[in-house]
Design a protein around this nucleic acid. Structure first.
Lengths: 278, 278
DNA sequence: AATGTCGTTCCATTATGTGGAACTCGCTCT
DNA sequence: AGAGCGAGTTCCACATAATGGAACGACATT
């Protein structure tokens, strides 16, 4: 019944590989602590101390103190089986973070409109590094739970939102982002190389919208259009998603226009309401 | 070394920090950084550098570096108006944190059942310090958005969930928690003293359930029952909430039983599925 | 009992964060 | 204009707070 969970294999993190010259983040102590936190939080399985030990590559004593601090702060909790789990303080932070998100608020009415036009699920996602973070959604059927994808992070290269966002990046930033990608096969259609992805992006750029042809999940298709501000500080996308049996590629072509219009309307509102520049 | 979260009932904490280096001491650098993050994230208004300066009580140079680090880490972003806002990384963390929450998963079917029985909104919240963190909900009408309260933090003393949770605390912990409270009047019915709250809690303890008689928001009532594990490491509550015009106190009395049953069922499931102890 | 694994604690070393003061920018007031 | 002010940013001697190797204790396995 409920489930969610999804996938999102983003196993980056944990720069274990290079103990020597590990190239520590620029943010010193905080960065290291967050890196540990992220390892725990994004793991698909519960982690014990020594699991984290190998993933993080830190010395025992150091890691132990970092974890203790994270627990003291309520960002992690340790169950009686000694496994570390995400703590409630994270939820609290996120609620505030989400409810105050200006971009989401500005875009919300457009999402609803697009949903009314198409009848399928509409997503809003923001580009962050090599990931798309889902920021809002309007669901078709009010299924079970709200536990929508909000906050979920999916790779750029296999989602409509991701490809739409990438397609408008200035060449420099695009190259930089592509360079950081590591590909993972989710379905038979997943892009597995930068070259293949780049061709797809070129088409998307010309058309003004991108598809997901069951590249992330089988039986799931979507069409997405890019949103960005003048300075490309904000790069995002809006999409309509549906099951393949109900949503043909022809249907997606038809929806492409409304999706683009919604995207453009949001882009405009962003410039107006969040101020030029930003 | 207890220290958990310490204060912060939202609202003004600004100047409580005056007594020289008030509350830190727990987790060193990380704690301070998170304290800054929390100030920004929980603020009701956008904050500029110097706002945070007075709120945090840190020296200029220090605060500036802390903020820079938080921005570098993606926990905050700085708009062109120089205001700091919560960053997307928080959302990502929270999604994982929420979707992996065992307690929520165990309780979910009971929430749905209770919703079917009552037809009104059902909430699940966990006690954390002096706050109740909303962890899940099932809404009556699928209004607009999912933006439910999930992750929202409300004071214990004016919510049904909060009072239900407090009512089962062992005397020691209850006293400790009451001692940390600072009361703020939300409505005409809000408890404004520990004494008054304590009387209410005594009644709730006897009955086995607690009410919110428009104590947090006018025109909103609820009935809530406590959930906890053997060691009181997990203290939570489940509630049914509705608008006063539709939900009379008599109605709440009637729902009290189903609510209690749901709470007890969850308590049992927790012991079984999450293991004794914890 | 002996051995191995895992989590926790200790402590000398030094890398890191600290915070007062000086600097820069943009704005308002006269 | 120019002085004056307030907001944000940078700098650097100093000491706090993180580091990580090594020892310790608790179980489990043989």
């Amino acid at each position: 019944m409920n489930e969610t969970d999804g996938q999102t294999t983003d196993r980056d993190d944990a720069r274990t590989a290079s103990p020597a010259t590990a190239q520590n983040s620029g943010t010193g102590t905080l960065g290291k602590a967050l890196s540990v936190l992220e390892t725990v939080v994004t793991s698909d399985t519960p982690l014990r101390f020594s699991d984290i030990l190998v993933l993080s590559g830190q010395p025992r004593g150091t890691l132990h103190r970092q974890l203790s601090h994270l627990v003291e702060e309520g960002l992690l909790v340790q169950g009686r089986d000694l496994c570390y789990e995400p703590g409630l303080r994270l939820l609290k932070f996120a609620y505030r973070s989400w409810s105050k998100n200006q971009f989401r608020a500005v875009a919300a009415p457009h999402l609803r409109k697009l949903h009314e036009e198409t009848g399928e699920t509409v997503h809003l996602g923001v580009l962050r590094g090599t990931e798309i973070i889902y920021v809002d959604k309007v669901e078709s059927r009010q299924t079970v739970r709200m536990e929508s994808q909000i906050g979920n992070a999916s790779p750029v290269y296999c989602t409509g939102l991701g490809k739409a966002a990438l397609s408008v990046l200035p060449p420099g930033r695009l190259a930089e982002t592509l360079g950081k990608l590591t590909f993972h096969r989710f379905t038979a259609n997943t892009h597995l190389s930068a070259a293949s992805l780049k061709r797809d992006l070129d088409e998307a750029r010309l058309r003004g919208y991108a598809f997901d042809r069951e590249e992330h999940e089988t039986e799931i298709r979507c069409v997405a259009a890019p949103i960005h501000d003048a300075g490309f500080d904000l790069v995002a996308g809006i999409s309509v998603t549906g099951p393949a049996y109900r949503v043909t590629m022809e249907q997606l072509e038809i929806w492409a226009n409304p999706v683009r219009q919604a995207a453009m309307a949001i882009s405009e509102d962003v410039e107006i309401r969040l101020g030029p520049g930003r």
